[in-house]
């Protein structure tokens, strides 16, 4: 679905911030992306959501080479990728409803076609009572859920989330993680960038670790026990992730519990 082959990236004449990245994100997979600040996580995410092009190597999306992709086709590809930004990128002059409906609106759909779906989605993320609110009046966790709802409203094939739990408390972090897992169960490929190792340990999912521009991929625990090590490997099938989620064993808290008391 998304494939990197010997990808390098630099800004201007500076040194490479990403070096020799090769990996494949299979359809329906779930993976964490972690690494220290400045390791190149944001640059890698920018490459994945087509906000930047590699300096060398091949990045392909859905079988298309990103470097030779005509500009006019970029929006169509972007509609297949949902992004949850660390800083949310919500528009305060629009209501929660309009923010979530944005990807549908820009693709030319009429509000009468999608209003019901958007409201249902907002109810699903626990914001059914905030439909007409401005994002400026929401708490960090609520904003995060609006951003997630916007990222998934178009049913993207790939969802990229940059520190989605960075601005929320532990309980909300768990609920958001549950949300991503549910989306993954529905077939969405998930890349979740986080510093939170506790969060990473909660799921039996592969972990992509960036360090000084190099990528190390650690397979999920279940596969490591079979292969017997931490060696680099292609990202495996999400089966293990799904099984872990469905069994609920990886979760320490009940992620289906009622919403927390968010305060702006």
């Amino acid at each position: 679905m998304v494939r990197f082959d010997n990808v390098g990236m630099r800004y201007g004449p500076g040194p490479e911030v990403l070096r020799d990245l090769s990996f494949d994100l299979p359809r329906g997979s779930f993976q964490f992306l972690t690494g220290p600040s400045g390791a190149g996580k944001t640059s890698l995410l920018r490459l994945i959501y087509l906000a930047a092009r590699p300096s060398r190597g091949l990045v392909s999306f859905f079988g298309r080479d990103s470097s030779t992709l005509p500009r006019a086709e970029l929006p169509l590809l972007r509609r297949r990728i949902g992004v949850v930004f660390q800083e949310f990128k919500l528009l305060n002059h629009l209501s929660v409803f309009d923010n979530v409906a944005l990807p549908l609106r820009v693709s030319g759909r009429q509000s009468s076609d999608y209003a019901e779906d958007v409201i249902e989605l907002l109810n699903w993320v626990g914001l059914g009572d905030k439909i007409t609110a401005s994002p400026a009046t929401l708490s960090g966790g609520e904003k995060q859920r609006v951003a997630i709802a916007r990222a998934v409203v178009n049913q993207p094939e790939v969802l990229i989330a940059d520190e989605p739990t960075g601005n929320v408390d532990h309980e909300m972090g768990m609920r958001l993680l549950r949300l991503f897992v549910e989306l993954n169960k529905l077939g969405t490929t998930i890349v979740l960038a986080t510093h939170d190792l506790q969060l990473v340990r909660m799921l039996d999912a592969p972990v992509m670790t960036l360090s000084n521009g190099h990528l190390h991929i650690r397979p999920p625990r279940s596969e490591r026990s079979v292969s017997g090590g931490d060696a680099d490997s292609p990202i495996p099938s999400p089966l293990a992730v799904r099984e872990a989620v469905e069994s609920g064993a990886a979760f320490e808290t009940d992620l289906h519990s009622d919403q927390s008391e968010d305060t702006p």
Binding site: Y49, A51, R71, A72, P75, L76, R78, R79, V83, K89, L90, L91, L102, P103, V106, S107, R150, N154
Partner: peptide, 10 residues
């Protein structure tokens, strides 16, 4: 930026 990243054409 938000529009662009949501798939809006130029």
């Amino acid at each position: 930026d938000a529009l662009h990243l949501c798939g809006a054409e130029d």
